[in-house]
Amino acid sequence: MLRFILLLALCLGVAGNVIQLSRSSFSGEYGGGGGKRFSHSLNQLDGPITAFRIRVNWLFIVGLQVRYGSKWSDYVGGSLGDLEEIVLHPGESIVQVSGKYKLYLRRLVFTTDKGRSFSFGKDTGTSFNAAPLHPRTVLRYLSGRAGGLVDALGFHWDTYPVHCLRCSLAGPGLGS
């Protein structure tokens, strides 16, 4: 009987992890085929997305950097163009990303769960619309390819982090 209870507990633990994993989804990769691969999968351990830095020129998304909790990811892309920064409100999350691309990304529009939208770049090229597959999930991290420009982006969705050990160690509050 004890073996049965232990086996049942083990199965429920595994099933619980499978259920949790089923809330994640991926949109993309949108853009061209060039550039060097990057992923912010480890950055998400620093906390939820709290800010973006996007560099744009007259026609392309040149580069980007994302703040997870209070730590910035590595910058990817080139150095020419104007750098813009947006900061999310505490507890605010990205729930949709749309844009345009040809061989490189040309436009990005981030929409939050608070109804705000942030637009970068030019409105030319093939359209895309990225959103999570599951309700109550948000943008957790980015991956893609970049060189002198941002060639392509993919969007990884999951539940908002309830507790983040690195966030607690980094200091108080989101957006600081």
Rank of each mutant, 00 (worst) to 15 (best):
D113M: 04
G47P: 11
Q65H: 05
P48N: 13
L59Y: 07
V56T: 10
T50H: 07
G77S: 12
F60L: 10
G99V: 07
D82Y: 02
F110V: 10
K71Y: 08
L83T: 15
I54S: 08
L64W: 08
I49P: 12
D113F: 11
W72H: 02
L59F: 09
R53H: 01
V97T: 10
S93W: 13
G69V: 00
S39I: 00
G63Y: 00
V95F: 07
V95K: 04
V56Q: 01
S39A: 01
K71E: 15
Y75F: 15
S41G: 02
L80F: 15
L108Q: 01
P48Q: 08
W58C: 04
R55H: 00
L45V: 08
H40S: 04
K36Y: 06
R55F: 00
E84P: 01
I54L: 07
F60A: 01
L108D: 05
F52T: 02
T111V: 03
I61F: 00
L64Q: 00
I54R: 07
T111M: 12
S70F: 01
E84Q: 14
G91N: 12
G69A: 10
G69D: 12
H89T: 05
R106Q: 12
V87L: 14
G91W: 06
Y101T: 13
G81Y: 05
P90I: 04
G78R: 09
G91L: 04
E84S: 14
G81A: 09
K100W: 04
Y104I: 09
K71L: 15
D113N: 15
A51H: 04
H40P: 00
S98F: 04
F38A: 01
I86C: 05
V97W: 11
K36S: 11
L45N: 14
G47Q: 01
D46N: 15
Y75V: 09
L105M: 12
E85R: 11
Y104F: 11
I94H: 09
S41E: 10
N57L: 00
K102F: 14
N43G: 07
G69M: 02
E85Q: 14
L42H: 10
L42P: 02
I86G: 08
G69W: 09
S79R: 13
D46Y: 13
E92Q: 11
F60W: 08
V62G: 00
G99A: 01
R67D: 06
G77I: 09
V97C: 10
G69P: 02
I49K: 03
T112F: 08
L64A: 04
L103T: 13
Y68N: 03
L45G: 10
R107E: 12
Y68K: 02
T50A: 03
G99D: 05
D46S: 15
E92K: 09
L88M: 07
P48K: 10
I86M: 06
F52H: 09
S79K: 09
S39C: 05
L83Y: 01
V109M: 11
D82A: 14
I86S: 02
V109S: 07
G78A: 08
F52Y: 12
W58S: 14
W58P: 04
H89R: 15
L42A: 14
